[in-house]
């Protein structure tokens, strides 16, 4: 029995360059966003039009991706659904960033009391998983892209507040912040030069991580019948609809599933790369310092 008890040396990715995977993911996301922008122009059919003479049709020349159980063109629904899916995903991440990061920062800047109050309250409801909170909020706020984005944003906001707090305290404890104070630098100077740039990196990274989660959570909600309204289809809703007729129209489910997988994977790859780029220790790791003369 021989256990070497050592891991293979970590391949340190060269920061600064763009790895191929990240470039590919970026290109994919750009393509999907572009598709969302021009979807109504290029979609061959109205995504809501039901062709009752062509139910559950397999892909052919007229319907490249086939039709669903009530005769709607899958390709058109997929293209138009891109827009709603992205709106809700980006909207949710933006709302979470604004509410979680914004409130967190205000509470931190105002002092210990507000910090204790806000984070005490967040701590109390932290045990609710985002999916459950989002589900409740959607029930309370109603269907549609706007309410769903707000529900997702509220559900993921605590993540941003915690990230803001961690980065804030890490920065405030740095010797360079202390030094700035001894130079006579006021709170605004310290915030502007030292704290906010480092905080921004942490928050952007968190947004990149939360964005694909918002999209998945929205799909799950739609899949459970709680997401967007029926007249603005999302990919999740397409999966849900098609799952009922999976035996006779399997093609209708494959396309939206692949779309969701490609989008979330691309966003995750980008998020992972951002996390590495904004790593506060990256500089120190990238190049070795000079040897003492």
């Amino acid at each position: 029995m021989s256990l070497a008890l050592s891991s293979a040396p970590l391949r340190e990715k060269r920061a600064g360059r763009w790895p191929v995977a990240v470039l590919a993911a970026g290109a994919t996301v750009v393509a999907i966003v572009a598709m969302a922008a021009i979807a109504p122009l290029v979609a061959p059919y109205d995504p809501l039009d039901q062709d009752l003479l062509a139910l559950n049709q397999a892909p052919d020349a007229a319907h490249w991706l086939g039709t669903d159980h009530i005769g709607r063109d899958v390709l058109s629904r997929l293209l138009v659904g891109t827009r709603t899916t992205l709106t809700i995903g980006f909207g949710g991440a933006a709302v979470a960033l604004a509410i979680g990061g914004g409130l967190g920062l205000v509470a931190l800047a105002l002092g210990r009391l507000t910090e204790t109050l806000l984070f005490g309250a967040v701590d109390l409801i932290r045990a609710i998983p985002p999916i459950l909170l989002a589900l409740l909020l959607v029930v309370a706020l109603g269907a549609g892209a706007g309410p769903v984005a707000i529900a997702l944003g509220l559900s993921y906001a605590p993540f941003f507040a915690y990230v803001a707090r961690a980065a804030w305290h890490r920065e405030m404890a740095q010797d360079y912040v202390t030094a700035a104070r001894t130079f006579g630098g006021g709170p605004l100077h310290v915030l502007r030069l030292h704290v906010l740039p480092n905080l921004a990196g942490a928050l952007i990274t968190q947004a990149a991580i939360v964005l694909p989660r918002c999209i998945v959570t929205e799909s799950v909600l739609s899949f459970l019948g709680l997401g967007s309204s029926p007249d603005a289809p999302t990919w999740g809703r397409m999966v849900a609809d098609a799952s009922r007729t999976i035996e006779i129209a399997p093609h209708a489910i494959v396309a939206p599933v692949i779309a969701i997988v490609v989008l979330t994977t691309s966003l995750s790859v980008i998020g992972d790369d951002l996390r590495r780029r904004f790593d506060p220790l990256r500089h120190a790791r990238a190049t070795p310092p000079e040897v003492e003369p």
């Binding site: 740095q174 010797d175 360079y176 202390t178 030094a179 700035a180 104070r181 001894t182 130079f183 006579g184 630098g185 006021g186 030069l193 030292h194 740039p197 480092n198 506060p280 500089h283 120190a284």
Partner: peptide, 30 residues
């Protein structure tokens, strides 16, 4: 504030006293 600079600190760990994101020009000029 007007009297702050009369007393200056030199820290144990110079790496921690210099913000890693800024150049020496920005740091020394702070």
């Amino acid at each position: 504030p007007a009297r702050r600079r009369a007393c200056q600190l030199v820290f144990q760990n110079p790496a921690g006293a210099l913000n890693p994101r800024l150049t020496i020009a920005q740091l020394a000029g702070e």
